[in-house]
Structures are given as C-alpha cells and as structure tokens.
Amino acid sequence: MSRRLSPIDRVGRVVLGALAAFSLLLLVAPSIIVVAISFEPRGFISFPPSGFSLRWYEHVFANRQLTDSVVVSLWVSLATAAIALVLGVPAAFASVRGTFAGRSAANAFLLSPQMMPGMVIGIASLFFGAYFAFRASNTMLILALSVFCLPFVIRIAMARLAGLDPRLDEASANLGAGKLETFARVTLPQMGPALVAAAAFTFIEAFDNVTVALFTSDVRGRPLPVELYYLVQYDSSPAIAAISALEIGLSFAIMLVIARTVGLERLGR
C-alpha cells in the first residue's frame, strides 16, 4: 500500500514501533541477564559477568538441600498434573458434549479456581486442613495445586474437543462400537497432542508455583519455589542465578512441547 503518510502518522508509527521494541526488550532482558550472570566466576554479581565459569552450577548441584527440593518439586508437579488430567479431561468432555441441565453453572464452577488468587487457595486449604487437625504437608500442596491447575487442563481440553468433528464419533457408533470403545479409540487419540500440552503446562505451573506452596508445603522437604523464596530474601549470590537459569531452561523445554503439540498461539485463548 503506497499511501502518503502525514507527519502525524509518521510520528505515530515511530512511537508505536518504539513502544513495541521497548516492551519486547523488557520481556526478554531479565531472563537474558539472569542467564548471563549465572556464569559469573567471582562471588558477587556483575553484568556483564567478569568471566565464564560453571562454579555456581557445581555449587547448586552439590547443595543437598536444593537438590532434595528439586526432587520434591518434581514429585509434587507430576502428581498435580496427573490429578488435574484425570479429573479435567472427562470434565471438559462433559462441558463440550454434554446437554444436561445446569451445564453453564457446572462450567463456571469448573473454571472458578482461575478466579482465585493462589494465595487464597493456599490459605483456604491450610485452614480447612487445620480444622481436621491436618498440618501443612506436601500432600496438602498437591491437593491444593491440582485445584489451582484444573482450569488449565479443562480449558486446553475443551478447546481441542470443540475442534473435533463429532461425525467421527457417530461413524464409530454406526460401525458398532460402544461409547467406551469410541471414547478410547476415536476421541482420545485425537486429543493426544492437547493432553500432552495440558500436562506440560500444568507441570510447569505446579513446578513454579510459590503462592500456594508457601502456605501448604511441608516444613521439612520443601519444594524448590519455597526454598528459592527464602534464599532470594536473604541472599543474591550468583548461585540463585544458576538455579534461575536452570528454571528458564526448563520453561523453554516446556514451551517447545507446547509449540509442537497445540501451538503457542493456543495459550492466548
């Protein structure tokens, strides 16, 4: 399009472009800086780093408390993702294909955890447990986190189910397959990529979560985010940058999984 641009339009374009460039820089710069300073050879932070060394990574891997917390977090996140998938996928199925009375109310309730701040879910779980004399524990954390993560699974699964052709299910039924067989052999395989994406997203949300975890996790055997939270408050050594860089690496791996399964644009809906 070769329209003549007025001076105001030119200024407008420059402002828009500059703002976009600034905010893209703002989005990525902190992560890049953290990764850079994790290679610092000295005992304090400087940018750009004064050299290249992996000593802070060695430091992190030699720290028993940290490696233990990573293991705790892995188990917690896997359990959370498993519960959220097992509950969420059938729920999404009912939400999309169901024709029962009160469907929109059920939908609203199923997605309601996303309206709740993590902190409120955490405190509510802590108090509810305390009422029955249960202390904060990693079991409580898993239960609370799966509430927190359920809407993610339901939304991703719903989006995929809504895009499926119901005629395939009808064809399967017409060929004599029962409901169960149709679900297992026709519907579920088509949902495969969406399920992988939902699992990956739930895993990373649970792995990174600190707002629920601060209230519900075990005092002994803390998950990584809680451990990191206390570290960050009292210390800013490059060791924290090394842990952070590893977490950034993990988030990129998860992003790749999502990009390959449902596509990154899906996350926007």
Binding site: P30, S31, I204, F207, D208, V210, E247, I248, M255, I258
Partner: peptide, 11 residues
C-alpha cells in the same frame, strides 16, 4: 510466552 512459563519468583 517464555516469561509466562518462567517462574514469577525467578523474574
């Protein structure tokens, strides 16, 4: 998306 999947604590 990459910051979205990175822990808020890290950021």
């Amino acid at each position: 998306i990459s910051p979205l999947l990175t822990s808020a604590l890290v950021r």
